[in-house]
Design a protein around this nucleic acid. Structure first.
Lengths: 215, 215
DNA sequence: GGCGTTCCATACGGTGCCGTATGGAGATGA
DNA sequence: TCATCTCCATACGGCACCGTATGGAACGCC
């Protein structure tokens, strides 16, 4: 679900910005460069870490550059969140749609989701900053879309609507919980535990049939 | 005689601080008052909201008071986190130990946990600030203790050790996930979903016995 | 090689917070 | 009543960041 923080903006072989600090010949920055810098800052320290001057320093520039591309800090944040939202929805789902079999698709989804790392993750940082009025609507949309998508897969697997919804929510709750648990007590998250959770949400529900079948 | 308009400080029922702002006669603050104020600030806006001057204003005092009771901001944070940790471990567990039957105890625990509200919760805020070096160790200890406690209950219910651990981690993960989900998409957390999750972790595990018994 | 446009560095004022210094008020005991 | 200890308000300097103003460098175009 999460993504690597931004592939740099196709500059042939040229010197990418971002810590161009020492030695690099000064290059001009694009709006996208700043968005990339903002997303990196978010991954590193949350919204609060997106401060104009520090990000500028990291990009090897100054505020003068920033305020030419953006009206203010909030505009940068909004733009960065928009980019994250679009990538987080389109990309992942498109990639999974390539898999025809719903069961395999679900497995691929979980493998990707539960394998995501926390440190340096934009998603983890945004979850932490969820109460922010800038983040809240973005997070809400992304979450709803993911839940609907999960529900659709469960439905395709033959679950009736209410159960499909319930299992989707429960699975996603576990996904979110793993983010928190990894930060709260990293040692508690074991490989065994992960695969157990994975099987849990891949198998048919316990309350549906009589005997729990192992797939 | 300093007969002021307002009744002097010897008026039986003492005037508690905290928003004593308008009209209240100035009262002296204790170290505990500041810790309470800090915890309220954390619940409202996380660690970042614990700023000396704003908290002082909310308590109807100034920095002068604060820096007499504490060396600096960090000392206040540490003290507040310690109080939270002690309350979070001792109190809850003691209360639950009163219940003899492990099954009922587990139910009471989940009812309490899943019913917890998020808004204004110190716990939710600390989870968001988990990466902070001040919060991390506290959160880690609390999490480990809770996991061990959960595991013990599952063991008392007859689960073999590995399963008990696994179910404890999974249940706690769901608990944490609900915090995130409530903030990310509040409408997705329904009463039905909650009770479904609850039954899930109260019933015997699908892979252990043959038929899932409804308690 | 001049010229306009694009982009940016520097300097500046403003704000919110931290921590210190200091004088003084309020309680307390002799 | 006076001396002392406890607690606190105010004033001050410093830091990090925001946003503005302005002059000038880099670049595209003719």
């Amino acid at each position: 679900m999460d993504m690597a923080v931004v592939p740099s903006s196709a500059t042939g072989g040229r010197r990418v910005p971002g810590v161009r600090g020492t030695g690099g010949p000064p290059r001009r920055l694009s709006r996208e460069d700043w968005i990339t810098g903002a997303l990196e800052a978010i991954a590193a320290g949350g919204l609060a870490a997106v401060a104009v001057e520090p990000v500028a320093a990291r990009l090897g520039a100054t505020k003068g550059s920033f305020y030419w591309h953006f009206a203010n800090r909030e505009e940068l944040l909004t733009a960065a969140l928009l980019v994250w939202e679009q990538r987080g929805t389109a990309e992942v789902i498109d990639e999974l749609e390539a898999i025809a079999d719903p069961a395999l698709r679900l497995r691929a989804l979980f493998a990707r989701a539960f394998g995501a790392t926390v440190t340096g993750s934009v998603e983890a940082a945004l979850l932490a900053d969820a109460p922010s009025p800038l983040v809240a609507p973005v997070l809400e949309r992304v979450t709803q879309r993911r839940l609907e998508y999960l529900e659709r897969i469960y439905s395709a697997l033959g679950q009736p609507a209410p159960q499909a919804r319930g299992r989707a929510v429960l699975a996603y709750t576990t996904y979110l919980g793993l983010f928190s648990l990894r930060r709260a007590a990293p040692t508690a998250v074991t490989e065994k535990g992960l695969s157990a959770a994975l099987e849990q949400f891949l198998a048919s529900p316990p309350e549906a049939g009589g005997t729990p079948s192992e797939e």
